[in-house]
Each structure stands twice: as C-alpha cells, then as structure tokens.
C-alpha cells in the first residue's frame, strides 16, 4: 500500500500539489487525469520518492518513503518517466537489463535475461533485442522503457511478498492504438496478479477504458476520485477542462467515452 497523507509540494512559493490524499491498493489500476499543469506529473514524482513533499507524508506500507534507500525502493517499485532521453547507443536488451540490478562487472543471470526477453515480448518488441536504441522510433523507445520497468520488477519477483508498484507517466503518449492497448493490457494483467499501479494518462477514452480508480486533478488538488462512473461526468470534466465535454456510453459494453468538441463556425 502506497499512500499520500495531506501531501503538498511547493517550489519557490508556488504550490504545485496541494493537500493530496491518495491510497494506492494492490489489485486496482489507478489512472490520473487532468489538464496540463494540474500537478499530475509532480504527484507521480512524489510517489516515486524523487521529490520530497513540502508538507504531509508519503508512506509505503506505513514507512516514510524518504527513509527507504534507493536500492530497496528499486526492488519494490519501477517508474516509466514522461520522457527519458538516452543518447548513448545501447542495444535494446542492454537498456531493458539496466532494470535488473547487477553490481560491478557481473553479467545478468539467465533468470533475469528471461525476464528481460519476456518484458520485451509483452510490449511487442520481440526481435528488437539487438537493435540500437538510438535508432528506434519514438513509440518503440517508449515501449523499451516500459519493458525496462517490467523487467526491474519481475526479476526480483520470486523472493518477495509485498506487492510490486508500477508508476507510469503517460506511458502511451507516443504509441499507436494497438500498442496503447497492448501496453495497458499488460499493466492490467499485472494488476490482476496483485500489483499496485498508477498511470498518468492524457487520453480520456483510454483512461475510461482501463481505469479501476480514476483520479481527476485540477490546479494541484484532487477534484474527484473514484470509479469511472463517479468521475467521468459531464459537469466535472467540463469544469476542470474548461470546455464543454459530453460523455457517452457505448451501448453494448457500457464503456464510457468523450468526443472532442467540434470546431464552431
């Protein structure tokens, strides 16, 4: 269980995240939505431990996040950042294996190598192992980083009782439709195995299709949180996004969606 208690984060007197309370439980995919500058990425960075809250506490199983070493955190949670810039010509498998902690000159064990290959398979990059990362397309690079995070958590999976935690900041922003679905399905599959997961998504329809819990942020605060039905409402979305939003439901499946407001003449 990863939770924020009354967390605020200021930088130079400006409040980016204000009095946020969230509890991330295993077995649910939490999706954060909200307009640009709402504090979504900052909240995610607070949850990774990368930023320290100005007020409030972030607790991992009751222990303050700041008091846990980077190494023990990494054994437990993995992060896909919004954009990762890697300019050195690693091969794809080398990038994925950066997730598998091997100190010094050691080479990754066969178990970890299998985990890395599986992770690449999961994000649709089988056969890309020895391609050079810097020569891949944007979407392929993004999937390499998702695979790296999956590999980081799965390689330590065997001797662990606590739920692994996966934090994703717009993991599908560069992906085509098929790969958006593939990546989020893989996340869901792990959630079903009891992982803790939180993803920041910009695409409201993708959020509606995959979220168990939806967290709507606006101006640093959580405006609404709950099941998709509770958050995906015309009045809430219209107010937060400051444009008229009409939600609809697909007849057969009950899946919710919005259409972008059409340009007015």
């Amino acid at each position: 269980m990863l939770e924020c208690r009354n967390v605020s984060y200021d930088i130079k007197g400006r409040t980016i995240v204000e009095e946020v309370n969230v509890a991330l439980a295993p077995g649910r995919l939490n999706v954060v939505i909200g307009p640009n500058g709402a504090g979504k990425s900052t909240l995610l960075k607070l949850l990774t431990g990368e930023l320290k809250p100005s007020f409030g506490q972030i607790l991992l199983d009751g222990v303050e996040l700041g008091s846990i070493s980077a190494a023990s955190l990494a054994a437990r949670r993995a992060v896909v950042a919004q954009s990762t810039h890697l300019s050195f010509p690693f091969s794809v498998i080398e990038v994925v294996l950066l997730g598998a902690t091997v100190p010094g000159f050691g080479q990754p064990s066969a178990v970890r190598l299998v985990a890395a290959y599986r992770a690449l398979e999961d994000v649709g990059l089988s056969g890309f192992e020895d391609r050079i990362y810097t020569q891949l397309s944007g979407g392929e690079r993004q999937r390499v980083h998702v695979a790296r995070a999956l590999c980081q958590l799965s390689s330590a999976e065997n001797n662990r009782t606590e739920a692994p935690i996966l934090l994703l900041d717009e993991p599908t922003s560069n992906l085509d439709l098929m790969h958006q679905v593939k990546v989020l399905n893989e996340v869901r599959r792990r959630v079903a195995q009891g992982w803790v997961a939180l993803a920041v998504l910009h695409d409201l329809n993708l959020a509606a299709a995959f979220a168990d819990t939806m967290i709507l942020m606006s101006q640093g605060r959580i405006t609404a949180a709950g099941n998709t039905d509770e958050v995906f409402r015309d009045d809430l979305l219209s107010a937060v996004y400051r444009c008229p939003v009409t939600t609809n439901v697909v007849g057969k499946t009950g899946q919710r969606f919005v259409l972008p407001p059409t340009a007015r003449m």
């Binding site: 990774t48 990368e50 070493s69 980077a70 993995a78 950042a81």
Partner: peptide, 16 residues
Amino acid sequence: NGFLLGEAEAFHLGIN
C-alpha cells in the same frame, strides 16, 4: 550506466 538514462531514472533504478 544508470546516469546515462538521467538522474531521476538512475534513482528509479536504485542508484544512490
């Protein structure tokens, strides 16, 4: 090796 991904990513990978 972790630093080549960036400081934040190096921290995510468990590097002090």
